[in-house]
Amino acid sequence: MLAKRIVPCLDIKNGRTVKGVNFVDLRDAGDPVELAKKYAATGADELVFLDISATEERRRTLVNLVRDVAAQVNIPFTVGGGISSVEDVDILLQNGADKVSINSSAVKRPQLVNELSQKFGSQCVVVAIDAKKIDGEWIVHLVGGKVPTELNLFDWAKEVEERGAGEILFTSMNNDGTKDGFANDALARLSEELNIPIIASGGAGNVQHFIDTFKDGKADAALAASVFHFQEIEIPDLKQELKKQGIPVRL
């Protein structure tokens, strides 16, 4: 049976992990490769690296990181942040990334989704969508939720699916950072309206939140950062608990 996936997300700046990493047993928790190896060894199913650097060397630094991760880590990983062209994706995939995640660049130029899926296959194209519920409607936002667009979450998700996205990574800006649980109503609706996997993001605070997002939110994967980085939730314990609840997981 296809397992539900647990996906730690690492924010990367200039080749180093930023904010919220506090692993007591790592020599260097700022080293993304060390952290990635640790997560792979403790049962993470997949990793996401989100690059937030804004320097001129960012591409070279990111490519080196991707290469190091691919060399040392034996689970799949997705790279996102600032990707806006076929060339960007080509170099990341060539260096060992399994998937790329695009967000603002897809909103600005939706045709990018078609170009990437035609050239590299849908399976490596994750479209990340940040949305905020305003007056009862889910509105797609850019720049980490700061800038609203005209797009409705469900319409936009359907559009990128038709353009060839292989997966949707949906972050609820209402839930992100709250540690109050995932946006399960919106997630469930995405899962019902689309026929590609949905990754839940934003709001993980405890084990029950993961159970809820897989059961009520019908999510295929759940992404979280701080609860893992601060070891508030240990992945082996989380997976044992999910299994007890009848949720298929890889143990």
Partner: peptide, 13 residues
């Protein structure tokens, strides 16, 4: 067939 999500992505037995 579209009775399952396509592509299949993830860990299976």
């Amino acid at each position: 067939e579209n009775i399952v999500k396509v592509p299949q992505i993830g860990w299976n037995q």
